[in-house]
């Protein structure tokens, strides 16, 4: 079975993240770029399938700047067989639609049985890419799965809805997105790290994929303005002396909150 795992490099959510106020682009120098946590979990889902079905072939796919190569190499060390890195200056500031078109074009170059993604990135928070790929590739999409199994060419999973869960299934080929209910990734071992040095990372440009950054028939979303919000300031902080509860209720009452 061939699996494609989509991963994304994002600004570390554990530090202050910054937008450049002139370009509106993520300021990559301001915070450390890390593999989005949901991407690690997605890779782990594929690695678990590889554990039980050794003939599985995992390709990791990412679109982004040069720095993503270290992350792709780590994925190879964990057990992925190959990696594809889509990199092009024209992709700077790409919106969701362009991103989906690029990733779909990269995925069309091979016959994958399963395309695995996270349900939502921590920087864009759109949660849309999996179904955009489903539309572009004419594949069924089982999204937001908190459990996933593959048996005899059929994907089964538990889909987390708002206020409900659904048992869903679909024959492969298919797209699946997972939630953070699934386990975190394993660490690469020494053997894996050595093996990864010999594994290929294919680098593709927009021209290689035959995708236009600004086709005349496709509307793009553009950022008009960007402003840094003033940081919140601390208000009244008191140490409890037995009267703090009363003071809090008075504060709430004064602000019409009770």
């Amino acid at each position: 079975m061939k699996i494609a795992v989509l991963i994304k490099e994002v600004p570390d959510t554990g530090a202050d993240r910054t937008l450049n106020q002139h370009t509106g682009l993520a300021d990559r120098a301001a915070s450390e770029a890390v593999l989005d946590e949901i991407g690690e979990r997605t890779l782990e889902v594929a690695l678990k399938i590889l554990d039980s079905q050794p003939e599985t072939h995992i390709t990791v796919l990412s679109m982004g700047p040069e720095t993503i190569q270290a992350t792709l190499r780590k994925a190879l060390a964990m057990g992925a067989a190959g990696a594809i890195h889509v990199s092009d200056e024209q992709l700077l500031g790409a919106d969701l639609m362009l991103t989906a078109q690029v990733l779909a074009a990269a995925l069309r170059r091979d016959q994958y049985d399963l395309i695995l993604t996270g349900n939502m990135s921590t920087d864009g928070s759109a949660g849309m890419l999996p179904v955009m790929l489903a539309e572009l590739l004419s594949l069924p999409a089982a999204t937001s799965l908190s459990q996933i199994t593959i048996t005899d060419g059929v994907l089964q999973g538990t889909r987390e809805l708002e206020g409900a869960t659904a048992q869903v299934s679909t024959p492969l080929p298919a797209i699946a997105s997972i939630t953070e209910a699934l386990p975190d990734a394993r660490f690469p071992n020494f053997k894996g790290i050595m093996a990864a040095k010999k594994k290929p990372i294919e680098v593709l440009s927009l021209a290689d994929l035959d995708v236009e950054a600004l086709p005349a028939d496709t509307a793009r979303s553009i950022m008009l303005t960007v402003n840094q919000r003033p940081a919140r300031e601390a208000g009244t902080i008191m140490t409890d002396d037995g009267q703090a509860a009363t003071a809090l209720v008075e504060f709430l009452a004064k602000n019409n909150l009770v």
């Binding site: 202050d16 993240r17 910054t18 937008l19 509106g24 509307a219 793009r220 979303s221 553009i222 950022m223 008009l224 303005t225 960007v226 402003n227 840094q228 919000r229």
Partner: peptide, 8 residues
């Protein structure tokens, strides 16, 4: 942390 506006 940031406020932005967007348009097509």
């Amino acid at each position: 942390a940031f406020a932005t506006t967007s348009a097509p």
